[in-house]
């Protein structure tokens, strides 16, 4: 199943170099109180690629994404977008970055008091000089592209989980961003829905041509749908390369993360045999 997905969506791409990168991060650090979450992260995301940051829960993936999207302020480090250093303290820099990027939240962050159409129209209404008619047309077009036009007048609470995810994506792409950040897009979903969400991201990334930066801990789906994967572990990026390089790596951290279902299977087999399990296996 994952092989089929991979063949369909992923084109193995090398890690971006400094010149072709749409987003480049250098030495990003973030500390909350005494806890250091990010310890000098550096990577580059190529234009038009699907870049996925993998990592266990609590590794700092969401914090990394929030630092990049200017929701959290990093302690130090630099973010370059389209070759220009972003100074998020400056309003023009912040606004230009936000015009060109969108963010899809883990819980979708849809406005429950607005209809699907109003949710999609909101960023256009507030950030563009378009007329009401143009905004409505663009919002309906986005809903149609995500097969939600029949639900334009429904509130998010009346839609299924998958539809809400698509609605959030419609809102993210309606401004035609160059880059979309996805924060745990498959959190809490069953395997079939996880596949559907990654397929949706890959499909619409091809259709709209945006660059996608995804953080997730779903290894098989991410390997199938991404052009580049990185592994964040204890606040450090310990791998960045193509999915095939990730799968071939003998790095013990990558292996333990990648092969966790096999490890679980052997642990369970040991439990069934009545063997004592060491702490490492727990």
């Amino acid at each position: 199943m994952f092989e089929a997905l991979r063949r369909k969506f992923a084109g193995a791409a090398p890690a971006a170099d400094k010149t072709s990168a749409l987003l480049r991060v250098e030495g990003l650090k973030k500390t909350f109180g005494n806890r250091t979450v990010l310890r000098g992260i550096s990577f580059a995301v190529d234009r038009g690629s699907v870049f996925t940051v993998l990592g266990p829960s609590g590794a700092g993936k969401s914090v990394l994404l929030k630092c990049l999207a200017n929701i959290e302020e990093p302690d130090c480090g630099e973010v370059f977008f389209d070759g220009r250093a972003m100074d998020f303290r400056r309003r023009d820099s912040r606004e230009s970055f936000r015009r060109r990027c969108s963010f899809l939240f883990q819980g979708n962050a849809l406005f429950d008091s607005l209809t699907a159409l109003e949710n999609v129209a909101l960023p256009l209404e507030q950030t563009t000089p378009l007329t009401r008619g143009e905004i409505r047309d663009r919002a309906l077009e986005a809903l149609e592209q995500l097969e939600l036009h029949e639900h334009a007048d429904q509130y998010p609470g009346m839609l299924s989980g998958g539809m809400q995810k698509r609605l959030a994506l419609a809102r993210a792409i309606v401004t035609r961003p160059e880059m979309v950040f996805f924060d745990e897009p498959t959190a809490g979903l069953d395997p079939l829905r996880r596949n559907a969400v990654f397929a949706m991201i890959a499909k619409y990334q091809k259709v709209f041509g945006f660059t996608a930066l995804i953080v997730t801990h779903d290894v098989p789906e991410a390997l199938a749908a991404s052009s580049v994967v990185a592994l964040l572990y204890h606040g450090e990026l310990c791998f960045c390369g193509t999915p095939s390089e990730f799968e071939a790596s003998d790095n013990p951290v990558i292996a333990s993360f990648r092969d966790s279902p096999d490890a679980l299977r052997s642990t369970l087999a040991a439990v069934r045999r009545g063997e004592t399990i060491g702490e490492d296996n727990e």
Partner: peptide
């Protein structure tokens, strides 16, 4: 709590 305020900020909406 549901990150709607953060969503507005990321959309460039005050």
């Amino acid at each position: 709590n549901s990150e709607q305020i953060a969503a507005l900020d990321t959309m460039g909406v005050s």
